[in-house]
């Protein structure tokens, strides 16, 4: 009987694999779960909301994954997932047919330039900011700060944060080729420890290890974003392929409900869309929202 050992083992493994696979099958076909993929900037918010939704509606499972805005948009375009998260308008991303996708804006995120604490500069003009990121200014001395070379740090090409910063912070100019990091956490760690470093990140990530910069004497605060005095911000989008139905629609309604917008959204450092005093269209037109509408 000893010789049957391995056979039994192999058989056992195959059986287990089959069971696991069939387990996946039943879970996804039951229709009680939705999968959301995309932007890592939006991920914490959707995860928190999804978790809360799951506890309130027993048996419903909201599966949230990262992967980046590009992944989110392409997966939802191929109908591989229910919702694709993105930091940018689908129209701004190459290779995406935006006409089929329906946009749901669930929040606003402000982005601010951040610097290492030792540079000795607290405010820059927009012109100076552009000059820094295009490599025309190379030392903080030129801006009235310490005698330190400026070290640029970018997010990866195609990152939503970078696109937003280049579009609104650098007036559409591209940053010079420089160091790149693929996550905001790494950017913060490196800016905090590298003398003379400058980069940019969402408000919610700024902590005491780095200094944020004012631009043209406007401080990066939520109220300045709401009034559009601070121009570097973007919507957080959740895209569906065609109009949402069923559970997807219910979850999106839940995301935009007062409960999530008032409590979770601002707690996690995003700005609820309802607080915005202006609306911005894809091509950058600003429309004032009348209060009480």
């Amino acid at each position: 009987m000893m010789r049957k050992g391995p056979l039994v083992l192999v058989g056992g493994i195959l059986t287990v694999m089959l069971l696991v696979l069939s387990g996946c099958e039943t879970q996804s076909s039951s229709g009680k779960s939705i999968t959301i993929v995309g932007s890592t900037a939006l991920q914490p918010l959707v995860e928190a909301a999804g978790e809360q939704y799951g506890t309130e509606n027993v048996g419903v499972f909201v599966n949230v994954q990262g992967g980046g805005s590009g992944t989110g948009l392409s997966q939802v375009q191929e109908k591989a997932v229910s919702i694709g998260n993105s930091d940018v308008f689908a129209e701004e991303k190459k290779g995406i047919d935006a006409s089929k996708l329906v946009d749901h804006q669930v929040g606003v995120v402000g982005i601010t330039p951040v610097v290492n604490k030792d540079v000795g500069v607290k405010n820059v003009s927009k012109k100076q900011l552009i000059a820094i990121f295009t490599g025309k200014l190379t030392n903080w001395k030129q801006l009235g700060g310490e005698d330190l070379p400026i070290v640029l740090l970018n997010r990866a090409t195609g990152s939503g944060t970078r696109l937003t910063f280049e579009k609104w912070g650098l007036d559409g100019q591209q940053s010079k080729d420089a160091q790149e990091q693929d996550s905001t956490g790494m950017v913060r760690q490196i800016v905090g420890s590298t003398p003379g470093a400058i980069s940019y990140m969402a408000f919610s990530y700024v902590d005491k290890t780095v200094d944020s910069l004012s631009v043209d004497n406007v401080k990066p605060t939520e109220s300045n974003v709401a009034s559009n005095k601070w121009k570097i911000w973007s919507y957080e989008h959740m895209y569906t392929n065609g109009a949402p139905t069923g559970l997807t629609k219910q979850f999106l309604d839940y995301m935009t409900s007062d409960k999530i917008q008032k409590q979770v959204v601002s707690k996690l450092g995003y700005i609820p869309t309802t607080q915005m005093e202006v609306k911005r269209s894809v091509d950058g037109k600003i429309i004032a929202i009348k209060k009480g509408m």
Binding site: T40, G66, G67, G68, S69, G70, T71, L73, S74, Q77, E78, K93, K94, G95, I96, A156, T157, G158, S159, G160, E180, Q181, D182
Partner: peptide
């Protein structure tokens, strides 16, 4: 770094 920020089938990808 790049793969998550590109769209399947595009030149970047």
């Amino acid at each position: 770094m790049g793969i998550g920020n590109t769209v399947m089938g595009s030149l970047e990808n």
